[in-house]
């Protein structure tokens, strides 16, 4: 049955490689090569190799700029990401477990309300008002709660689909052996959810780290600003200083790119989880 490849098929593949070379590699190369240039050279915005390699100088400048604001905001971003993901893993897996395992009025309505959150946009001003009332606006705990609330519906849905395939016999055996509700969940159910937990950790941490809108609303002008807000401000601070601007852009992209290089397969698989409902 194996047919030889037609000329057209080979030609198509070569064309695809060339086109993506222009649409993707040129864009990445442009950002990287301009991060290596001095102010005057970077102002040309071209693809030529720099006459004078200035990457280390740019790096030092961005690093030390404004009392190391970049480093501080990077640290904040990482803190927010880690805290949000840990919290959402626990609250979503517990909630989904109960919603999937037992019926009744409360679970049914919780389920419906959570599902509605998949499409609904966040009502930003009232949320700001709630956070302000709780004295949590412009603080890291405040933004963590917002991120958790926003990822909660989707994570819940993934966990619920997964619990659907966990046999109830396991629970029954554990209950007969005397497991209470907490033991049943933490000792028996949660460890079995590992595949979906890791998918949520990988993909949602990218979402939280890259988030710009919510820090913009809920971390205004505060010391706890995130790295995305910082590079946004750099765009107007380094207005014609493209070398330094692109250095900052590259630094921001390092964590997601590392994650992508290390966990390429898991990320791609994670994208499709929950995207298509069986």
């Amino acid at each position: 049955m194996v047919k030889r490849r037609s000329v057209w098929s080979i030609l198509g593949e070569v064309l695809a490689i060339l086109v993506t070379g222009i649409t993707h590699w040129v864009v990445y190369y442009f950002a990287i090569i301009n991060a290596c240039k001095t102010r005057a050279e970077a102002a040309q915005l071209n693809l030529k190799l720099p006459k004078e390699w200035a990457f280390i100088d740019n790096l030092k400048y961005v690093w030390n700029f404004n009392n190391r604001v970049f480093l501080r905001s990077f640290f904040n971003s990482v803190t927010i990401t880690v805290l949000s993901i840990i919290m959402v893993i626990f609250v979503a897996s517990m909630a989904a477990w109960i919603m999937q395992r037992r019926g009744g009025f409360i679970t049914k309505w919780s389920d419906k309300i959570v599902l509605a959150g998949l499409t609904t946009p966040l009502a930003v001003v009232p949320t700001f008002w709630v956070l302000r009332t709780l004295h949590l606006n412009n603080t890291i705990p405040g933004i963590v709660l917002v991120e958790v609330a926003l990822i909660f519906p989707f994570s819940c849905m993934l966990y619920k689909d997964f619990c659907n395939n966990l046999p109830r016999e396991i629970d029954e055996a554990a209950i007969i052996d005397g497991c209470g509700p907490l033991q049943l969940f933490f000792r028996v159910a949660f460890p079995l959810m590992k595949p979906i937990t890791s998918a949520i950790i990988i993909l949602r941490s990218l979402v939280v780290y890259n988030d710009f809108t919510n820090p913009m609303y809920f971390l205004q002008g505060s010391k706890s600003s995130t790295v995305q807000l910082t590079i946004y401000l750099f765009q107007s601070t380094f207005v014609t200083d493209y070398g330094r601007l692109f250095t900052a852009v590259l630094l921001v992209c390092i964590p997601p790119v590392l994650l992508f290089l290390l966990l390429n397969k898991q990320i791609m698989e994670g994208v499709t989880m929950g995207a298509v409902k069986g």
Binding site: I113, G117, T120, V125, T127, W129, V130, L145, V148, A149
Partner: peptide
């Protein structure tokens, strides 16, 4: 968390 930060607003 979901109720206070998302549903209530």
């Amino acid at each position: 968390v979901y109720g206070i930060i998302f549903v209530l607003p």
